[in-house]
Amino acid sequence: MSRVWKFSDDVNTDEIIPGRFNLTINPKELAKNVFCEVRPEFSKNVKTGDVIIAGSNFGCGSSREHAPVAIKGSGVKCVIAKSYARIFFRNAINIGLPVLECDIDAKQGDEIEVDLKTGKIIINNDEYKAEPLPEFILKIVEAGGIVNYLKNHDIEELQ
């Protein structure tokens, strides 16, 4: 069983990981400061397998890939948001952080079950179904990110 970390709308990449910490590309190092300004307790209390639930436009702002890397490095299993900023969405897929689109009613600390394959989400006895990812994106996610995909495939095979 995973726990919910609840965030609001328009969470930006400066809030996920401020620019001054982007000196490293080490996921564990970045995770030490993830959400440090808006949720200082996050990095101390987050447990492997926890889930972030957010509103619309999650990950807006700069193109820094440090943002999804920092979240993945913290052990978060997946992010479920009403919608994402486009670069963050692409970055998350590319580095292998699962991102689902779904409007979920949840509170901080709720227990949640997420099936990444089917998109089925159970929370407080309510069942939700996340928007399925397009087929070519699933190919990247299933390979564990674009880098792993391209080790064995050509980019044209995505189409």
């Binding site: 193109s63 990110g145 880098v147």
Partner: peptide, 10 residues
């Protein structure tokens, strides 16, 4: 269009 680093390297 803005892209993340991994896609730049790819």
């Amino acid at each position: 269009a803005g892209f993340g680093s991994t896609e730049i390297g790819v």
